[in-house]
């Protein structure tokens, strides 16, 4: 048993497991940031009084939400970078990382949009009417009255989307981000099959440790920031 653990420990010296997790955290951070901005814009489109914008928002969500993430990630590298030769960074590492971030962001923006829309549904219609009645047009009413309340009502579903995004960040492997967790685990198992279960447990536990606080925090926040009516 001790031999097994020390053997597993020596793997940590040879492979940068913490660095791999750090990569996924960074992918998640930037992906979430862009997805939040894009998703908010999409949600605004979907609740806007302009029919064509609503249509574009709905089309985006329905297409991106129903496309497998691996397809999007592969497309980012093979399509956007290789075929279209769109330049996003000078080194391979940065290029793949940024393409992966964009892939994660455009995919999860669809889920962020729907989470925010569910938050908008927690805001009574009267709030929008009162905002319009004092002379606010759509965008100021959305910015000052609707969205601040919608976000508070959307914390739980947004938290779920963030958790999904963190776990889905491993699909960055499909965008050639070969130093992230899933790829690292694959390499480790390939060359150290006798530590198969230990390696798996290490990565599984790592994600559990990352995900559980997000769930606890968002549940706490959604209760604390709930709008009293």
């Amino acid at each position: 048993m001790n031999d097994y653990l020390s053997g597993l420990g020596s793997l940590l010296v040879r492979y940068d497991v913490l660095g791999a997790f750090w990569t996924n955290i960074q992918l998640t951070f930037w992906g979430a940031l862009i997805a939040l901005v894009l998703g908010t814009a999409l949600a605004l489109m979907r609740i806007s009084p302009i029919a064509s914008l609503r249509w574009v928002g709905a089309a985006y969500v329905n297409i991106l939400r129903n496309t497998p993430l691996t397809i999007i990630m592969t497309f980012m590298v093979m399509g956007v970078w290789t075929a279209l030769q769109i330049h996003v960074a000078d080194t391979f590492e940065s290029t793949f990382f940024r393409l992966a971030v964009v892939g994660l962001a455009v995919y999860h923006a669809a889920f962020v949009c729907e989470s925010i829309r569910s938050g908008v549904n927690t805001v009574p219609l009267g709030q929008a009417e009162a905002a319009r009645a004092i002379g606010l047009s759509f965008l100021p009413a959305a910015r000052l009255i609707i969205l601040p309340q919608a976000f508070r009502g959307a914390i739980a579903p947004l938290g779920n989307t963030l958790i999904a995004l963190l776990k889905n960040s491993t699909v960055a492997a499909a965008a050639s981000v070969s130093w992230e967790t899933a790829s690292t685990m694959k390499t480790m198992i390939e060359f150290n099959p006798n530590f198969l279960w230990g390696i798996f447990a290490m990565f599984a536990l790592g994600y559990v440790i990352l995900v559980i606080p997000i769930g606890v925090l968002t549940t706490w926040l959604s209760q604390r920031l709930a709008v009293q009516r």
Binding site: P49, P124, G126, Q127, E129, A130, A131, R132, A133, I134, G135, L136, S137, I145, P148, Q149, R152, V227, Q228, R229
Partner: peptide
Amino acid sequence: EEGKALAQLRAEVGMVFQSFNLFAH
């Protein structure tokens, strides 16, 4: 119909609702 002009006009018409509709946040 819509837009800035309507918002401007609404600003000059005060409205009080049955369910108050104060901005809850």
